[in-house]
Amino acid sequence: MSENVLDNTASSVLETGQGESFWLLGDFYSIKTSSAQTAGAYSITEIQSFPGNGPPPHIHQREDECLYIVEGAFSIILGDRVFDVADGDFVRISKGTPHTYRNVGAIPGKMLVVLSPGGFERMWAELGQPGSVNQPPKDDPSSLNRLLALAPGYGLEICG
């Protein structure tokens, strides 16, 4: 089946592996629904996170974020609380809440990330390096510096 997209806001079907995909901070991101397709209401991104990986602690000033754990084991920090989550667990993070996650399993984990309103996924795409899940790019030591430079424009605060 090929991607069924009539226009930017039309209904669509994506098969496994479809969607705008890229590598960011050692994980593989695939945008399944962009804010451009939802009139800015939300975005959904699948993240394949590798053992030990996760973003630096941060705060979204504009978006509520939801994480649905498809597979794997993650440690989630919300404010000063730590939660261990795995297959089928769901986490809702209100905007303004300091948070992060880390893949604490021995194998890659997979999660769906819903951001509302949408638009933040554009920062990920801007920072990411194109590639396929089977072909990671070479390490990019400038990624963290570029993240720090772009963050304020996307209402993102990196903690600590």
Rank of each mutant, 00 (worst) to 15 (best):
M1S: 11
M1E: 05
S2G: 12
E3P: 01
E3G: 03
E3L: 15
N4E: 11
N4F: 01
V5E: 10
D7S: 14
N8W: 08
N8I: 15
S11I: 00
S12N: 09
E15P: 00
E15T: 02
G17E: 07
Q18E: 15
G19T: 07
G19R: 09
S21T: 12
S21A: 15
W23A: 11
W23R: 09
L24R: 05
L24W: 12
L25W: 01
L25S: 09
G26C: 05
G26F: 00
I31A: 08
I31C: 13
K32G: 05
T33P: 00
S34Y: 00
S35E: 06
A36Q: 14
A36T: 05
A39K: 13
A41G: 09
A41W: 01
A41S: 14
T45P: 05
E46W: 01
E46T: 01
I47T: 06
S49T: 10
S49V: 08
F50D: 03
F50E: 07
F50S: 03
P51I: 11
P51W: 00
G52A: 08
P56V: 15
P57W: 04
H58I: 07
H60V: 13
Q61C: 11
D64M: 12
E65H: 06
E65I: 06
C66G: 08
I69P: 03
V70W: 05
S75I: 00
L78R: 06
L78D: 09
L78C: 11
L78V: 00
V82M: 14
V82S: 15
D84P: 02
D84S: 14
V85M: 07
V85Y: 03
A86V: 07
A86T: 15
D87Y: 02
F90N: 04
F90E: 04
R92F: 14
K95F: 10
K95T: 01
P98I: 11
P98C: 13
H99C: 12
N103S: 08
V104G: 03
G105F: 09
A106E: 14
A106V: 13
I107T: 15
G109I: 04
G109K: 03
G109E: 06
G109T: 05
G109Q: 04
K110P: 02
M111C: 08
M111H: 06
V113H: 00
V114F: 09
V114C: 10
L115H: 02
P117R: 09
G118E: 06
G119S: 10
E121M: 10
R122E: 15
R122M: 14
M123H: 03
M123I: 10
W124H: 13
G128P: 06
Q135W: 00
Q135V: 06
P137H: 11
K138N: 12
D139F: 12
S142K: 06
S143E: 15
N145G: 11
N145M: 13
L147P: 02
L148H: 04
L148A: 07
L148V: 01
L150Q: 10
L150E: 10
A151S: 09
A151T: 00
A151R: 04
P152A: 11
G153T: 06
L156I: 15
E157D: 06
E157S: 08
I158P: 07
C159T: 03
C159K: 15
G160F: 02
